[in-house]
């Protein structure tokens, strides 16, 4: 068993692009669900809208990439308004149903033949992210420590995405510690109490949904910058649930929650994959009798699922959460 390899697999992934993109998506979800109590089960839809918004703008209209970023984010804002208008006056469950359906509908819609001219259908779009890599100031080579190394290309996407996570987290810190954030936390607990004190609850919920969705859109943009192509399959609803899982792992309604959660989640996913590969190859503890190399993909997620269950039982507040906060909910 090569334990260093397992550890470095985990670390590479825990610091890598997936961790950063998921952390960014989770910052948005944390605002919506963690601080405001909005059950947005369609975060994947916000990522999709951001990603396609950007890709289509470059691909169809040939506009410069920075402008396309803005279009992507604007599209996510529009999506948030569209979902929020009919649902935010209703009970919380309605938002859950509408968001998950809308995300699924969008995924199917961009896949249709009718949309193919715009979205490329199942083939998707590529070649819209070239400028992003032309901006890369990092000299060619591999960077990192030990076995944890990234190419100059990957490092560029990773650094930009983590930088966005940090910037957005600082903005969140401003917001959640302000009276605005106080209203959101109060809404999470009891909307009617907040209404009775003269606050426009629907407007606050809308701001939270749209802002969290815009951050999700940004995460979608970075996801497809890394891939350099966009296709419907990237936005399965499993994406939304992974983001929920890592948010709970890191700690709900905590500024560090998404960051810690993103890192831990991907550390565990890739670490357990590395562990299983090593274990099967080395016939570790007789594991090769029950498991073949092809099984490892799904089994690693079972292991992560199990870890999350254990966590919820023994440490419901997550890595950075506060016990009081969980108890008082």
């Amino acid at each position: 068993m090569d334990w260093t390899r397992i550890l470095s697999d985990g670390l590479r992934s825990g610091l890598g692009i997936n961790a950063a993109v998921y952390a960014l998506a989770a910052v948005g979800l944390n605002l919506q669900y963690g601080y405001t109590g909005l059950m947005n089960y369609g975060q994947a839809g916000f990522l999709l809208v951001g990603a396609y918004g950007t890709a289509v703008t470059v691909d169809q209209w040939g506009l410069p990439l920075p402008l396309a970023f803005l279009f992507g984010i604007a599209a996510a804002v529009g999506f948030g308004l569209l979902l929020g208008l009919p649902t935010l006056r209703l009970r919380a469950d309605y938002l859950a149903i509408v968001t998950i359906s809308a995300a699924e509908i969008l995924k199917l819609l961009v896949n249709t033949r009718q949309a193919q001219g715009l979205t490329g259908g199942p083939q998707g779009i590529n070649g819209f992210a070239n400028d992003f890599f032309e901006w890369n100031p990092i000299a060619q080579g591999r960077y990192g420590f030990g076995a944890v190394k990234f190419s100059h290309r990957d490092l560029w996407v990773i650094l930009v995405t983590w930088a966005l996570v940090v910037v957005v987290t600082f903005v969140m810190r401003r917001l959640v510690h302000s009276p605005w954030g106080r209203v959101l936390r109060a809404i999470r607990e009891d909307e009617d109490a907040v209404r009775s004190l003269g606050k426009n609850v629907v407007a606050y919920k809308m701001q939270s949904l749209v802002l969290g969705g815009a951050i999700g859109g940004l995460a979608g943009i970075m996801l497809v910058m890394d891939k350099q192509f966009v296709e419907p399959k990237l936005f399965e609803s499993a994406l939304t649930f992974f983001v929920y899982a890592l948010l709970i792992l890191g700690g709900l309604a905590r500024l560090m929650g998404p960051i810690a959660g993103g890192m831990l989640f991907w550390f565990f996913v890739s670490g357990s994959q590395g562990f299983l590969i090593e274990a099967v190859d080395n016939k570790f503890l007789g594991i090769h009798h029950v498991l073949q190399t092809d099984d490892i993909g799904p089994v690693r997620f079972m292991i992560v699922g199990l870890l999350i269950m254990v966590l919820v039982v023994f440490r419901p507040q997550g890595a950075f959460g506060s016990r009081d906060d969980v108890r008082l909910r």
């Binding site: 401003r174 917001l175 302000s178 009276p179 605005w180 106080r182 209203v183 907040v194 004190l197």
Partner: peptide
């Protein structure tokens, strides 16, 4: 108590950035 006060600058999304 503070939540209930009226006309708070910091309760708007823009005002929150004027600590």
């Amino acid at each position: 108590m503070l939540l209930a006060a009226r006309d708070q600058t910091g309760e708007s999304l823009v005002g929150a950035f004027r600590p």
